[in-house]
Design a protein around this nucleic acid. Sequence first.
DNA 1: ACCTGAACACCGTTCAAGT
DNA 2: ACCTGAACACCGTTCAAGT
Lengths: 210, 210
Amino acid sequence: MKPGPRRSISQADIVDAAFEIFEEKGGDAVSIRGVAARLGLTPTAMYTYFTSKNALQRAMVEQVFSGLDLAAASDPSVAWRTRLRTLAADLRARFAEHPGAVVLVASGPLDGRQALTFGETLLEGFTSGGMPLADAARATAAVRAYVLGAITLDAAAAGADAEAADAPSPLWTEATQHPLTEAAELLGGDDAFATGLDRLLDGFGLPPVA
Amino acid sequence: MKPGPRRSISQADIVDAAFEIFEEKGGDAVSIRGVAARLGLTPTAMYTYFTSKNALQRAMVEQVFSGLDLAAASDPSVAWRTRLRTLAADLRARFAEHPGAVVLVASGPLDGRQALTFGETLLEGFTSGGMPLADAARATAAVRAYVLGAITLDAAAAGADAEAADAPSPLWTEATQHPLTEAAELLGGDDAFATGLDRLLDGFGLPPVA
DNA sequence: ACCTGAACACCGTTCAAGT
DNA sequence: ACCTGAACACCGTTCAAGT
């Protein structure tokens, strides 16, 4: 079963292997050495494909963005607000599948091809409704910030839950100093992400949709 | 000048030392061993103060939040929108002082005392204007997401600039596939952060301010 | 209680050398 | 061009032992 002389391996194979380790053992466990071992390579060989660990991490971020259906987001036969809702929800869902990958976004510039095209799609959508470019730029920046921030808070909370699961549960809890926060939590609000986005779009004067 | 038998060191001293290394050598260079060395301690002694590196990182996040003037943000004699603008700008400024600390926010739950009080202050502000708690909860979540996301994008961009400075400048650049993005960048828009926040608040029906 | 010393099981990255 | 082996300078964390 021993393979013949190894031909090669693609950058995509490496990114996939990295995500596998990510899912199995968490984000901190993704190492050049570990990924190399999984692929039957020497750590040194990895530097043939990526110049550094950071470069690999940025490729991972790109892969998350690359799953977005940007074609659908550009379809002018659907109201822009509707398309944007879908696009934002998709991005959120993709990061929810890779909890922990959010940290990678914060650790480097969002300047990959896919990430840039994502921004371009937003600008195109806003201007297509007649919004001046300067305003569309602000709307795009705001939407990017809102979506990324919401995703980050999701991931941070998911990490908290994971930790709490194997932590000893306290026998008593401090009387809360945050009564409103506690009351608000009981209200649930699963649609908070969508609602916030819609309010933001309202603020930018985007017409409502049926 | 040799000190007498070492009495001890506070958790705050350790957090300060960690930030010093952060500023000097970047976020990746902050290590338990490095912080210990700076304080004249053995790495093992660090575990007397923090149970893990993660615990230290969360304390660093708390320290960034602890500089906020939450008292001013609760002053009812000023319009809530005005107070919120100031609070958001302050938080952004504090993270701009510690570029790279943003990653730490994403790497764990935002459940420190200061961070929770920050959220409580937002809820209080929104409800004080007569907004129902359920709506205030959504507005709070949206503002937290927007501010955190904007700060994250700031930090990521700052990291990009820092890298670009010592990278070889390319002799030629690919023709851009993103004409709108390029055109939008020329428009600048230094007030994008404030504008986006105001539009978000507009969307949530917060009354405008003089 | 607080600290040290030694050790375990890892890291990212570089460099000379092989084919 | 792509890969290996050996090495450098580090990591976080644990454990037994000292005072």
